[in-house]
Design a binder for these strands. Structure first.
Lengths: 190, 190, 190, 190
DNA sequence: AATGAATGAGGTTTCATTCAT
DNA sequence: AATGAATGAAACCTCATTCAT
């Protein structure tokens, strides 16, 4: 039964991700249950509330970002130019976000309940990011006034840029936006 | 009677803007009617649907942006450095957006019905922007590969960055984000 | 439209009373709406919550009791023996309660939200009752230690006694119970 | 194994009683299972339905009343004044009821399914009561028209009087109510 | 025999929109 | 032209009961 419960848990998460992609924030609990092939009751056994469910997905997203940022930190420690490592991580994480439009849109409309679920993960991500920026600053390959808070801002910018409405003016244009932001992070006398 | 109708129209718009600021997307038609001091029926006489109402506000926002961009174009034509004029316009328009969080949030979660109302205005704004960028490119004060589509992306990024959730890491940080983006638009060998 | 709204208000109240009688506390809002011939939305426009609706009925019940107790007070002031007047009021009010089983049952299971609606009316009723008891005590026709709190207790007792489950042992037996309680209120050396 | 099952049975009953006291009729089967330290499945193995479980508690309550009434009968047969014995039994049983508010409240809102479980016990109790009243009537220490059905009515009255909502006007007031009812049962020329 | 995950009908309440007055 | 009462399709969530392990 443990195996069954685990399977259901996964199916629920997958179903939610799909529906968020298809129908956006209008996704309903009953739909999720149906798509996952479970009863609503089961859905609520796994996630006590709609916010808890959406929050879990947001958390998973940030866990994905964490992996990318951790890799950047590892590379920087191993001798690679920290700014290059950071740039790559931002591109990779933006690709994740682009492939995960549904959750990104949910995040845009997130309320504090949803965020609360992911907060610890977010904090860890910021901690990692902080270290990478520190290394880049020490190496002189980033603006002297770079600040960890710049990164969520850039990511939020890129994400909003991936929104279909904006993207229609420039498909895949988020890559440019990110490039512009990355270039803007370089030392001014580059 | 015409004056009365006009007054109601204005009051509805003002009420919606206020409520969007206060309660965000949870704003309801009944709330709007009450705040505007009219019946729901009257509200629906002025705006056939919720999307039409919110769309009108979005349109007004872009009309505000138009004013700023027109000024930039006028200045550039009068001899000012086009990139400087553009930068100023972006800052001014971002300030407008910051002062109008409610509508911005609605815009972020907008659906195509809402956008449709503002589409002509958006197109005009892009046309103006295009001309400014052309002048800047001719003057060599902007990246050679600058593209009109970069601007809505940057504005979307700044706006998402003004969202309270992101802003909490960096209040007024959107100014930095914008600065980074502007710096990223400069020619690489600046 | 005001007339229509009033009619609906009344129909809702009547429908609720009927259903409370038929199905007891299991009565549902949808049922009430259907029976009243209105949409659920209309039901909720008139009563913001289930408790508010049930509470209104409870309040009406106590208003009925008030009429009876006021009559007793008037009679006592006009020279009738206050204890006789009180007894009659208790009998009359118990008859009302018997004819209103549904609301009585709801009252038994009432929560504080429901009671809150009727509280002012209850307080007024107790005030009236207090005055009657005072007159009876002055006239020496009631136990010297009679207390206003005795009356709600007796009424609660009679009401629970009208419950079908208990009543099955003694239909109309509540009259006896009330008689016993009234006799118990007389001065001991009667 | 038999011992285990018995222990579970008891724990379930104790848990239900506690929860009925704490949360009243909002008590849920899951709550009961958790408090009892068993799974819901086990709970349902012991009691086929919620009504069966609550009914069992009601039955236990009446078994307690039986003990008191049996003692009264024994005393009356042994020569004590039957009315005095009856009064004492009523007081003792009311004290039991007061100490067991949860079950009493459930009883007040009971449906026929719940009652069915306790019916045989109730019948036995009434039989005992009948005999005591007969003795009292023979001794002339009770109203000539006393009837066994008077007793459940009085007990129902006292119980409803112990309800927190009513009791708030007169804490421990049920003792008075009972006293008034007992006095009302006395021969009129006492 | 025990467990607890799963079920899903059903409960209350909301809110964009319509329509009688 | 204005009003606001009415509508009813959902939305979220609960909980007694079943059933696979």
């Amino acid at each position: 039964m443990r195996a069954d419960a685990y399977r259901n848990h996964e199916r629920i998460l997958v179903a939610t991700r799909q529906l968020l992609e298809e129908k956006g924030f209008l996704t309903q609990m009953d739909d999720v249950a149906e798509r996952a092939g479970v009863g609503v009751g089961t859905l609520y056994r796994h996630f006590a509330t709609k916010d808890a469910l959406f929050g879990e997905l947001v958390k998973q997203t940030f866990e994905g970002f964490q992996v990318g940022m951790q890799a950047a930190l590892d590379q920087a420690r191993a001798g690679r130019d920290p700014f290059e490592a950071l740039s790559d991580a931002l591109v990779r994480n933006s690709e994740l976000a682009a492939a995960d439009r549904g959750v990104q849109d949910a995040l845009l409309a997130a309320n504090s309940q949803m965020i609360a679920v992911a907060q610890p993960t977010i904090d860890e991500l910021l901690e990692l990011t902080s270290e990478v920026i520190e290394l880049a600053r020490a190496a002189g390959s980033i603006r002297a006034d770079a600040h960890v808070g710049d990164i969520p801002m850039i990511m939020a910018g890129v994400s909003s840029t991936q929104n279909p409405l904006i993207a229609s003016y420039h498909p895949e244009g988020w890559r440019r936006h990110l490039q512009i932001a990355i270039d803007g992070l370089r030392p001014l006398n580059r």
